[in-house]
Write a protein that binds this DNA or RNA. Structure first.
Lengths: 206, 206, 206, 206
DNA sequence: TATTAACCGAGACGGTACGTCCGGTCTTAGA
DNA sequence: TCTAAGACCGGACGTACCGTCTCGGTTAATA
C-alpha cells in the first residue's frame, strides 16, 4: 500500500490516487462496505480498475486508506500528560467513544475490522498505522504514571492497555450499550482501580 | 435459521442438514472462510444449493450453525459458584482463552466475528445463542458476589462484564499477545481490583 | 458446439439459445464482427455471459452458428443433376456468387473465414457443416458426369472441385472483381474445358 | 506504414525498427498470431509501445511488414518466359506451393490473410506490395502466350489468373489436401486446358 | 397399495463482480 | 530532443458465485 505521506515516486497521477480515496469514502457512506465494489470505485473516481489494483492489494486496503485520509485518525488522538492520569485517559477514551458512536465511523470501522480479522496483511497495516501508535502513547503515559507512583510499580503496561481499551471495544463490537462520555468515565475509573496498588490505601492523586 | 434442537418437521432429510454442517466445518478448515462458497459446501455435502438456501439465510449463518454444532459452545462454558469469585472467573476465562488460542476455533470465530460486525441478523443470532447466555450467567455470578460483599455494592453488572471479558477479546482480536492461563489469571485479578470496594481508602480520584 | 438439429438435452432454455443467435446476427450487421463482443451479445440477448460460454467455445463459433441459423446455408445450395453439367454447375456457382456479393453475407463470411484460418476447431466445424456437404454433392455430380463421359474418365474429383470453386473464392477474398452471373458462367466454361478430355474433340453434350 | 526500402528520414532509430520486425517474427513463431500483442512485441524488441504506434497502424501491419522483411516474398517469385508456358507456370506454382506448405509461412500467411479479410487498409497494402506484382507478371506471361497462340486469343487475362492461382489457394485455405509439386503440376495442366483454344472442335456446351 | 405432493440432487439460468489483459494515449526520466 | 519505460483510462476478457429456477427422481403421507 502506498504511503500517504511518502508517495511512491513511480506514481504518476496524484489526481487518480486522491480520486480513488474520495470515491471510496463517498461510496461507503452511500451504499455501505458490503455492497462496495472495486468497479464502482473506479467508475466513480474516473479511473481504470488497473490503477486501483496497481496501488492497493484489496478492497479493504482501499477503504482503510480512505478511512485514514478522511479523518485525523492517523497520528492519533492526543494523549496529554497533565499529571492527572484519570483526566488524561478520559481525554482519549471520550473522543474514541464519540467516534465509534458516530454512525459513519461506526460503519466504516466495522467494515475495516471485519477485513482485519481475516486478512493478515491488512491487519499488519492497521497495526502499523493506527493501533501501535495509539498503544505506544498509552503505554508511555502509563509508564509515566507508574514512575509517579500513581499506579502499581509492577504494572504490566501491555496488560494495562488491554484493561484500558478492551472493555470499550467489547461494548462497541457486540453493541452491548450506548457509548457515552459517562460510560467512558466509568471505564476510566474501573481501569484506575485495576491498576492502582491493591491496598495500601489511596493512590496518590494529583 | 433452523434450530438444531427442534428440527422443522417439514425437513425431509436430516442427512442433508448434517452433511451441510459437516462439509462447512471441513471447508472452513481447509480453505478458510474467505474462500468458502455456498456452491462448494453444496458440492462437498452432496446437496443441492437450494437445500442450503432453504434452511439458512446466508453463508455466515451456515458457518455459525456449523460452529455451534461442532463444539459445546452453546449452552456455554460453565460458570460455577463456589463462593470464590476469582476462582470462578478463572474457570471461565481460562477455557475461553484456550478456545480462542486454538487455531481452528480462532479461525472460525474470526470468520463469524467478521460477519457479525456487518450482518445485524447474524449478530442477533449470535447474541441469542452464544453471547447473551454467557453474559447472563456472568452477571448472575457477579450479582451473587455483590450480595456477598465481595465486590462493590453499587457495581454496574453490565459494566462489570465488559471489564471481565473486554480485555481478553481485545488482545485476541488484535493479536496483541498469546492467550495463556497466566494472562487470563492476571485479567481476573485486574477485574477484581476494578470491581472491589475501594477497601481501606483511596480509590479512584475524582 | 451444440448441434442445431439435435439440441443438447441438458439445454434448458431454447429461448436463450435462439436469443443469442438472433442478437449475434443483429450485432454483426450493426457494428461488424471486429467490434462484436461476447458481452454485447449477452446484453442484447438478455442472457448471462456464462450461458454463451456454456454452449459455444468462442466468439467465432457463435457467429458461425448464427450464420447457419440465419440462412439456408446448411444442407447447401442444391446441385441438381439434369444431365447438363454446365447448367448444373451454373446452378450452384451463380447463387454462391450472389451470396458472396451480398454485403451482409460478405461481411459475415469474411469474419468467419478469418476465424477459420486460425482456429482449427472452428475450421473443423465449418468443414463438417458447410464445406464437406458442398464438396460431396459436387463430387457426386462430377462423378455422374464422368460416368456419362462428359468429363475425362481419369478425372480426379478432389482436384476437380478445387478447379470449380477455387477461382471464385480467389476473386472474392482478394476482391479482384465483381461477382456476377456472367463471371460465374465463364468460370463454369473454363472448368469444363479443364475437365474435358483434352482433345478428341467435343465431349458429349446432352 | 513505413517503407522498408525508403526509410522515413524522420525515423531516428533504424535499430528500433528492425528490432520490432525481428521480435514480431520470433513471437509469431513462438506463440502464434492470435496471442501476439503489441505489448509483447515492444517488450521483446526493447522498444516503447509508442514507437510501434508511431510507425505502424495495426498489429496486422507489423506482422505483414515482418513477413515481407523475413522472406523474399516481395518483388515476387520469378515468372520466366521460356516460351514453354506450362513449364513457366510450374516454375511459379511449385515454389508457391512449397511456401504455403512450410509450417512457418503457412501460419504467418494465414494470420495475414485473416487480417486482410477484415481490414481494408491492410488489404490495400497487401495488394500493392504482394498480390498486384504477382498478378501483373502473370498477366504479362499469359499475354505473351496469347500472342504466341498458345492460349485462346480471346482469353480474359483477369479470369485467367484466377484460374491459375484460385484452385491452389482454395486447397490451401481449407486444408483440402497436401500441397505437392505433383498437385501443382496437375493444376497447371488443368489451367492450360481451360485456357487452350478448344482445339479441334467440342469445347463448352450450350 | 397406488397416488400425489413435497422435497431432494443437480445444475442451467440471468446477473454481478472479479482480477487480468491489452489497446491506444500520455508523462517522465535519462541518454 | 527523442526514446524506453510504463502509468494511465477504458473496456472486454473468461471465471467464479450469487440466488432463483426448472428438471427428473425419490420418498412418505394420504386415499
Amino acid at each position: 500500500m502506498a504511503s500517504r505521506t511518502a508517495p511512491d515516486p513511480a506514481r504518476r497521477s496524484e489526481r487518480a490516487h486522491s480520486a480513488v480515496l474520495a470515491a471510496t469514502t463517498e461510496l461507503v457512506a452511500e451504499i455501505g462496505y458490503g455492497r462496495l465494489t472495486i468497479e464502482a470505485i473506479a467508475a466513480r473516481a474516473g479511473v481504470g480498475k488497473q490503477t486501483i489494483y496497481r496501488w492497493w492489494p484489496s478492497k479493504g486496503a482501499v477503504v482503510f486508506d480512505a478511512f485514514l485520509a478522511a479523518g485525523e485518525h492517523e497520528g492519533g488522538i492526543a494523549l496529554p500528560d497533565t499529571g492527572d492520569l484519570a483526566a488524561d485517559l478520559r481525554a482519549v477514551l471520550r473522543p474514541t467513544s464519540d467516534e465509534l458512536a458516530d454512525p459513519d465511523t461506526d460503519r466504516t470501522y466495522r467494515a475495516i475490522m471485519a477485513e482485519i480479522l481475516n486478512d493478515p496483511a491488512l491487519q499488519a497495516e492497521h497495526r502499523t498505522r493506527l493501533l501501535d501508535p495509539l498503544l505506544a502513547v498509552t503505554r508511555d503515559r502509563l509508564r509515566s504514571a507508574r514512575e509517579a507512583g500513581q499506579i502499581a510499580p509492577d504494572t504490566d503496561l501491555d496488560l494495562a492497555v488491554e484493561i484500558v481499551y478492551g472493555p470499550l471495544y467489547y461494548r462497541w463490537q457486540y453493541r452491548l450499550g450506548p457509548l457515552t462520555h459517562e460510560h467512558a468515565d466509568r471505564l476510566v475509573d474501573a481501569a484506575l482501580r485495576a491498576l492502582n496498588p491493591p491496598s495500601a490505601g489511596g493512590g496518590s492523586c494529583a
